[in-house]
């Protein structure tokens, strides 16, 4: 359904990811594992067309995805960046509303759905997003991406700096959304537990390329693999 093919890219002259190919099937949840600085975020930005492709491309439903990020978003790619880039001087409601309206959905309905799905946002609905705590911003960024009604959701380190109880809640919501709406999810993570709890398959990255592809079971049991992830 969603494929990144031979992705090579980086910033300026520096190539960070080299020849990376990844596929996510319809309604599948796939994890992208690896230590800091192996190129997970760069791959996510490549998938969203936020960095120029030196080579390689992205396919959605077998067709080449458009090259402009705005068009790619409209083609069904939802993106939750690392560091939760919410619009700081807009309210929670506006953050969600503008995402829905831009893609031709009702902003009011989207906000209602989001507040139902993420009750923790309800008391904050009219607050500026910049004033929310880290965990709340992360949930908001997720709610905003969902408001665009994506076919595939790209999550970049969604658990970074988020307290454990919210991480568990987030895992539950992602599984439900995946089940009920059939949204495919690609999640780049360092948090192994989180990945084990939602993903069925994983790619492990090392120095800008995919080192191996593995499944949930071997991740759970293979102590050696775990230490390799830690990098010792």
């Amino acid at each position: 359904m969603f494929r990144i093919v031979n992705a090579t890219g980086g910033y300026g002259k520096t190539v960070i990811i080299r020849d990376v190919s990844i596929a996510v099937d319809k309604a599948e949840i796939v994890a992208l594992l690896g230590r800091n600085g192996v190129g997970k975020s760069t791959l996510m930005r490549f998938a969203m067309a936020l960095i120029p492709a030196l080579s390689g491309h992205v396919e959605i439903d077998g067709r080449n995805a458009p090259e402009a990020p705005a068009k790619r978003a409209k083609a069904g790619v939802g993106y939750v960046p690392q560091g939760r880039y919410v619009f700081p001087r807009m309210t929670v409601t506006e953050n969600i509303g503008v995402a829905a309206e831009t893609n031709g959905h009702s902003g009011r309905l989207a906000v209602e759905t989001a507040l139902r799905e993420f009750p923790m946002l309800r008391p904050k609905a009219d607050d500026l997003a910049g004033g929310l705590s880290g965990g709340q911003q992360q949930v908001l960024a997720l709610a905003r991406a969902l408001a665009t009604k994506p076919k595939i959701l790209l999550l970049d380190e969604p658990t970074e700096g988020v307290q454990p109880s919210i991480i568990d809640e987030m895992a539950g919501i992602l599984k439900r959304i995946n089940r009920e709406r059939g949204v495919a999810i690609l999640v780049a993570e360092q948090d192994l537990d989180f990945c084990l709890s939602i993903a069925t398959r994983a790619y492990v990255m090392e120095k800008g390329s995919v080192q191996l592809e593995t499944d949930r079971e071997s991740l759970r049991t293979d102590k050696k693999l775990q230490q390799q992830l830690l990098g010792v």
């Binding site: 658990t159 454990p164 993570e189 360092q190 948090d191 192994l192 537990d193 989180f194 775990q226 230490q227 992830l229 830690l230 010792v232």
Partner: peptide
């Protein structure tokens, strides 16, 4: 030292985001 920390499950936990021991 690194050998002791490497064997420490709590350190592995915070690195890998596991929560059983924290």
């Amino acid at each position: 030292d690194i050998a002791a920390l490497r064997a420490d499950d709590r350190v592995l936990d915070i690195y890998l985001g596991r929560r059983e021991h924290v």
